[in-house]
């Protein structure tokens, strides 16, 4: 199971902060596609991704037990 953590407005879109996804050996890009499909989450193309609190690319491969956080970049000031 992959533990997915949703930040900021993504948390509201999903209605909760965390969700568990079946998906050993999935890439971050595949996980994003799945999250978009399953939960109609918008804007995942531009979010920053952390895997186990370490910055990760779209092609990072996920393993069972990983925690993935999706963090929308912020531009205001």
């Amino acid at each position: 199971m992959i533990n997915v953590l949703l930040f900021a407005q993504l948390k509201d879109e999903l209605g909760k902060e965390t969700v568990s996804i079946e998906g050993n050996e999935m890439s971050v890009a595949q996980l994003k596609a799945k999250m978009k499909m399953d939960f109609q989450l918008e804007g995942l193309e531009t979010v920053m991704t952390a895997v186990n609190e370490e910055f990760a690319d779209d092609d990072t491969i996920l393993s069972d037990g990983d925690t993935v956080a999706f963090i929308p970049p912020v531009s205001g000031g």
Binding site: L5, F7, A8, K11, E17, M48, E53, A56, I71
Partner: peptide, 18 residues
């Protein structure tokens, strides 16, 4: 990188080693 949400009580640091 530090990311937080004070209303939703979230605080996350993301290491940038790689």
């Amino acid at each position: 990188l530090v990311s937080f949400d004070l209303w939703r009580n979230q605080y996350q640091t993301v290491k940038l080693t790689k």
